[in-house]
């Protein structure tokens, strides 16, 4: 049973949040993980999620928004089911990261921070994801794909299209 009545989250996530606020010396430490996990479930951090998380932590909505807007992985608008994040920072750039990004744009027919009409994919150019030695790299949701070539990208995207991609959460 969730400590919040009428929770907007799934019973599992609500239970997880119930637990999360109890493990830290200070409740508020759960804020950033909660926002990210809420986004994982809903697809973005909705206003309702902001309000419920504020209640769970015991702070006001504004404070949640202040924090939410600081972190680049958190978004307040829905993205595709699979968010393709192509790194173009220096190590990836030197090994063709922009070419990969271009390829994704053409293949998916969408630009930076756009979502395909069917909602399957969204695309994002991101800063260094810590895969420099295996560049160029990208993440689909939380899953890493490295040593990319346009051909490899096609294979990866097809896996997701076919529902066979990994979906780490």
């Amino acid at each position: 049973m969730s400590t919040v009545t009428n929770t907007i989250f799934s019973p599992e996530l609500a239970a997880r949040f119930d637990h999360l606020v109890t493990i830290y010396p200070v409740k508020r430490s759960a804020l950033v993980p909660m926002l990210l996990y809420a986004q994982d479930e809903i697809g973005y951090v909705s206003d309702a999620a902001v309000s419920e998380i504020a209640v769970r932590i015991g702070i006001n909505d504004l404070e949640v928004r202040n924090v939410l807007s600081y972190y680049s992985m958190l978004r307040t608008k829905p993205a595709g089911k699979y968010n393709v994040q192509v790194c173009t920072n220096i190590s990836c750039m030197l090994r063709g990261g922009y070419g990969i990004l271009d390829h994704c744009k053409k293949t998916l027919g969408i630009g930076h921070k756009e979502t395909t009409a069917d909602g399957t994919f969204s695309l994002e150019e991101v800063e260094c994801i810590g895969a420099c030695c295996w560049a160029p790299a990208m993440q689909v949701n939380y899953d890493f794909h490295d040593g990319l070539t346009p051909e490899k990208v096609d294979v990866v995207l097809q896996q997701y299209r076919d529902g066979q991609g990994k979906d780490v959460k």
Binding site: N60, L62, E63, R65, N66, S69, Y70
Partner: peptide
């Protein structure tokens, strides 16, 4: 009152 915050970065 806490009516003002800082957002984005």
């Amino acid at each position: 009152v806490f009516a003002l915050g800082i957002q984005n970065r």
